[in-house]
Design a protein around this nucleic acid. Structure first.
Ligand SMILES: [Mn+2]
Ligand SMILES: [Mn+2]
Ligand SMILES: [Mn+2]
Ligand SMILES: [Mn+2]
Lengths: 220, 220
DNA sequence: TAAAAAATTTAGACTAGTCTAAATTTTATT
DNA sequence: AATAAAATTTAGACTAGTCTAAATTTTTTA
């Protein structure tokens, strides 16, 4: 049978919290991310385990099974493709698309996804720099660094963001930081780890640690 | 508060069954169209009435309130715009889009609908010839006739279909009948009311009463 | 390593939407 | 108008997903 909207969300969140190592995810972490209570999570975990989507032993946390992983990646693929559509075709800002994509990602129809993918020209990344899984379910996570780890004087390319909150994305817009920006670290303040960076060889910008922490860059 | 997927479907179906005269819709008719039982319909009707979306007096059938009508038309607008998107942009056939649009029509976001509408060039009709309500909720029902009512020798333009079933639409495709086709009635058989028609001044086609009944045409 | 704290699960309950079976109301027929 | 048939509503129950409060298990800390 089909998976419900709610089940798909649990799988997607388990995938995200599990990280690239595929480690166990705790009931409390899921309660936090799903905005429900731990007791509700336990109920759902029993059901997902029943359906063979997760590995679950009481009190031990959960991981996705291969099947669960496949389902999660399909949802992520749809989410990111729809985000590309919203930005590239409909003209939404990258700060406006996440919530709409949260709904669109649950529309069924394999063929819809594949036609959408073709219509968009088989994009490799979504508007936030996140990689789009291919039709076979392969998800290549590029290993970007965080701006915090960049040394003084280094030049890096902005490739993505860790925080997807509209307020953060809007802040980046106002700062003139977008995907692809060339960032040169001109100064790092020991006291609060804020920094001055030069964008695309042009204007210099002051950024807080909070921002640096959430900007993904390609070091070369 | 927001209306659920299920509530929206009830409103849309009440709108459809109510016809242009806005007449009462019976519990049984709704049970049939929603593929549920009459008892379930009664429960939902109480709820919709509670929310001010329908006029409901026990045993008397229902009509939409102005509010209910507004909500129904918004759903219809979304359904038809998404169908245009699926056909015009993604390359689906007109026989493939209805079920997918049934899902997409429930995605919220007013701004999404308006951006989609603009992206599509503000289409007036969907792939089946059905009129698309405008952003203000105006729905202009053109008064087409049915091919059955066309006289011998008359020339009419095909403008829509009454049956939206994939099998019927595929049958029209195979027959070479599409929206915009010029149809001249060459012969009508008294016995079964089947007919021979000439399409776009070209090939002559034999069509059954069942088909004629479901083809909408513009008489001039 | 025993007690305290934290995390997790169980118990019991609620809502939305659905069902079957029984009761009621309306409509059609004698 | 009385009765039969059809339509509709009510009663009681079920599932998915959620909740609070209580019980249990694991982890931490003294
Ligand atoms: Mn997103
Ligand atoms: Mn994204
Ligand atoms: Mn349709
Ligand atoms: Mn249509």
């Amino acid at each position: 049978m089909q998976n419900s909207f709610t089940e798909e969300n649990y799988l997607k969140i388990i995938h995200a919290l599990s990280g690239r190592d595929g480690g166990e995810v705790s009931t409390n972490a899921l309660a936090e991310s799903t905005a429900t209570r731990a007791a509700s999570v336990t109920d759902m975990l029993r059901k997902l385990a029943e359906k063979g989507l997760i590995n679950y032993k009481k009190y031990q946390g959960v991981t996705l099974t291969e099947l669960g992983e496949k389902v999660a990646i399909k949802v992520i693929r749809k989410h990111r493709l729809w985000e590309v559509f919203l930005v590239e075709k409909l003209g939404f800002g990258w700060d406006e698309v996440h919530d709409i994509a949260e709904e669109l990602e649950h529309i069924p129809s394999e063929i819809l996804v594949e036609k959408l993918d073709a219509f968009l020209g088989h994009p490799r990344f979504d508007p936030h720099g996140d990689p789009i899984p291919d039709a076979k379910g392969n998800l290549m996570e590029p290993d970007y660094g965080v701006l915090t780890d960049v040394q003084l004087g280094e030049k890096v390319r902005m490739m993505g963001v860790l925080d997807h909150a509209p307020s953060f994305l809007q802040h980046l817009d106002r700062s003139g930081l977008t995907l692809g920006s060339l960032i040169e670290v001109k100064e790092i303040n020991e006291y609060d780890r804020s920094a001055s960076v030069q964008i695309d060889g042009g204007p210099t910008l002051f950024i807080s640690l909070e921002v640096s922490k959430n900007v993904l860059v390609q070091r070369r």
